[in-house]
Write a protein that binds this DNA or RNA. Structure first.
Lengths: 193, 193
DNA sequence: TCAAACTTTCAGAAATTACTGAAAATTGGA
DNA sequence: TCCAATTTTCAGTAATTTCTGAAAGTTTGA
C-alpha cells in the first residue's frame, strides 16, 4: 500500500472496522479508498493503491455493488470500469440502513413471526413465545420509525436531530396547545399509544 | 442440541445472525437461549442445551458479560453461577447501542479527528480531508441525537416513535405558533441550523 | 488446611473465511 | 468474424477464527 499517510490511516481503519460489520478487510479498505478519492478509480488503480490481488478487488467491488455503496461508471474513450461512492453522505447513510434492514432485520422478523404463530407445547415454549413477541414488537416499532425518519428530507432530518431530546418539550407543548385549541396535531400517537 | 423446536429455531437463527454482527455463533446462540429462558441457567445447562463444550461456553459467557448483555447471579444453596438477560427489551436495546457506540463509533471519530487535524500535502489529501470531515459531522450529529433519544424515558420514546414522520408536522406547527406568539420553543434547532 | 465443586485458561485441532494466480469468459472495436 | 483489453470465476492455499480437552486456577465449606 502506497498512499498519503492521511488517506492510508483512513483506509486501514475501515479495513479493521469491517470485521465488526461482517464485511472483510479488503471490502472495507476499497470502500474507504473510493470514499475519499477525488475521482473515480478503476480496478487497477485500486490494486495499486491497496496492494491486493486483481481478483480480490473484483470480488470486493461486486460485494460493494450488491450493497449499493458504489457507483459504476465509464469514462469516455476508456473501456475500463470506474468506481466511486455517492457524494452525499446522507444518501450513503440511508443506503446502508436500507440494506442492513433488508439483510438482517427482515429475516429476523420473519423468523419471529413464524415462531409466534406456532402453538406452544408447555410452559417453557409459552414463555419463550412471549419473549419473542416482546422482541418482535420492539424491532417492528424501531424499524417503522427508522423508515419514517430515513425518508424525511435531509433538512428536516438535520433540524430534528439537532433538536435532540428537546423534541419532548415540543411534543408536550403541542399537546397542550392541542387541548386548548381543539386541534389534534398529535392524532397518531394518541390513537396508537 | 435438544430443545423444543420453537426455541431451537430462535437459537439457531441468532447463531447465524451473530456473524453479521461480529460475534461468533456460540455467543449468539447462548444469548438467544438465555433471552427466551424462563429461568436463569448455569454453564452446564447451556452446554446441555446448545451442545457446545464447557470451555467454549465459559468464553462466550465472558464475552456476553463484557457486552453487559447478561446478568450473573447466584441461587441460594448453589455454588454455580447462573446467567440471565435483563427482562426489559428496551434496556437491552439501549445497552447494545451504548456498547456499539463505545466499540465502533468512538474509535472511528477519534481517527477522523486526528486525520482532520493534519496539514494536507496536496490536492488529493485536501479532498480526502474534506470528505472525512463530512463523515465526521454526520456521525457526530447522528450519535448525539441517538444518545438523546436513548436517554428518553420509554413512554416518551414510544410515543415519539409511533408518531414517526408526523413529527415533521408537529415541528412545523410549533414553529408557526412560535412565530405567532413570540414563544421560541424551537430555540436549539434554530440556533444551530 | 484440605478436598470437592466449579470456572478459566490455553495450546493445538478443526472449521471457516479470505486471498491468489491461472484460466475462462466477456466486451468492444476493427 | 477475430483480436486485444478487461473482468470474472474458481480451485487451491493461506490466514484467521472458533472450538475442544486437558490442565491449572479459584472458591467455599468442613
Amino acid at each position: 500500500m502506497n498512499l498519503p499517510p492521511l488517506i492510508q490511516s483512513f483506509v486501514l481503519h475501515f479495513g479493521e472496522m469491517g470485521s465488526h460489520w461482517g464485511i472483510n478487510r479488503t471490502v472495507g479498505q476499497i470502500y474507504a479508498l473510493l470514499y475519499v478519492s477525488d475521482k473515480p478509480l478503476n480496478a487497477d488503480d485500486i490494486v495499486e493503491a491497496i496492494g491486493c490481488s486483481r481478483s480480490n478487488t473484483s470480488m470486493a467491488l461486486k460485494e460493494l455493488q450488491a450493497w449499493r455503496l458504489v457507483k459504476l461508471q465509464h469514462l469516455p474513450g476508456d473501456r475500463r470500469e470506474y468506481f466511486s461512492t455517492p457524494e452525499d453522505v446522507w444518501a450513503i447513510f440511508k443506503t446502508l440502513a436500507e440494506e442492513r434492514q433488508k439483510r438482517e432485520v427482515e429475516p429476523t422478523l420473519t423468523m419471529l413471526r413464524g415462531a409466534i404463530m406456532e402453538t406452544p407445547s408447555g410452559d417453557a415454549e409459552r414463555h419463550a413465545q412471549a419473549r419473542m413477541n416482546e422482541m418482535y414488537q420492539l424491532i417492528e416499532l424501531v424499524t417503522k420509525w427508522f423508515a419514517d425518519i430515513r425518508d424525511m428530507d435531509v433538512d428536516t432530518l438535520q433540524k430534528l436531530m439537532k433538536l435532540g431530546s428537546q423534541v419532548q418539550k415540543v411534543l408536550q407543548f403541542t399537546q397542550s396547545i392541542g387541548r386548548l385549541t381543539g386541534r389534534d396535531s398529535n392524532r397518531n400517537a394518541d390513537a396508537e399509544a
